[in-house]
Design a protein around this nucleic acid. Structure first.
Lengths: 130, 130
DNA sequence: TGACAATTACGAAGCCCTTCGTATACAATG
DNA sequence: CATTGTATACGAAGGGCTTCGTAATTGTCA
């Protein structure tokens, strides 16, 4: 049966691979390795092994393409971001989105343009509220 | 010399202990264990071991009080929250606070009161901008 | 003092993550 | 067919996290 629950939280190494896949789209192991080596030196077979494990976990999917395999992220970047931020919300902020936003904006100064964007988002959220 | 760098990112189990210390203030192992057992069953000596390791890591400090030890979180809840949210910001959102806030508010609906609070924070941030 | 209760200290097992070396498969080429 | 280059598959080592059992320590009380 082996029914698979929702994909588990990715580890740091897995996340660095997912970032490459989100940025570059479906890629071979070699392509991922080349991109990754620029920021995080890693032997080819290590990337391969990680991708194999991530396939088992359901974090990526793979497709045969002749001799090689082509991997792609199983979830969109936005969906994964929502999951991870929701995780942090529960584990660290007791579910309070307000506190999280407050600490996020305190930790990193956002540009006036970004603040304006956030304000626009607030308008939409309040407007959509019944 | 053993100069200690900044305390490392706490693991999940460590975080659950920190939450107790933040909520209850300085506590003995027994007190932490009692609080913790309500949400996450854990044997007494496991809590003790974790606290000993967390002491080495610099996540908590301890003080002798007669027979027992009294532990307390080394960092304030707010400081730890800022560190962790900054971490997520870098690892998952490419440093964009805007995207993080957007996904946070999408992942969890905030109440109108909370949205108003966030709006107030935005006002302060823009006002303080030179 | 001796026995009991509570506490800390310590060691080891089991699991996962990460890394890498080596083996294997397979197509292209001479 | 043999060789070479490029893939994937696999196993194992090393380290960290979590768990728990057991030993050692210390205070209390009869």
């Amino acid at each position: 049966m082996s029914r698979r629950k929702s994909a588990p939280r990715p580890t740091d190494a897995e996340l660095s691979i997912l970032r490459v896949l989100w940025r570059c789209g479906p890629s071979t192991v070699r392509e991922v390795h080349e991109q990754l080596s620029r920021e995080r030196p890693m032997v080819y077979t290590t990337v391969l092994k990680l991708l194999q494990i991530m396939t088992e976990k359901g974090l990526v999917t793979r497709e045969d393409a002749g001799r090689a395999h082509i991997y792609q992220a199983a979830q969109s970047e936005e969906y994964a971001q929502r999951t991870l931020v929701g995780d942090l919300l529960d584990r660290v902020f007791g579910g309070s989105a307000q506190k999280l936003v407050l600490q996020a904006l305190t930790a990193r100064k956002a540009s006036p343009e970004e603040l304006a964007e956030i304000r626009k988002l607030l308008d939409e959220l309040e407007g959509g509220e019944s």
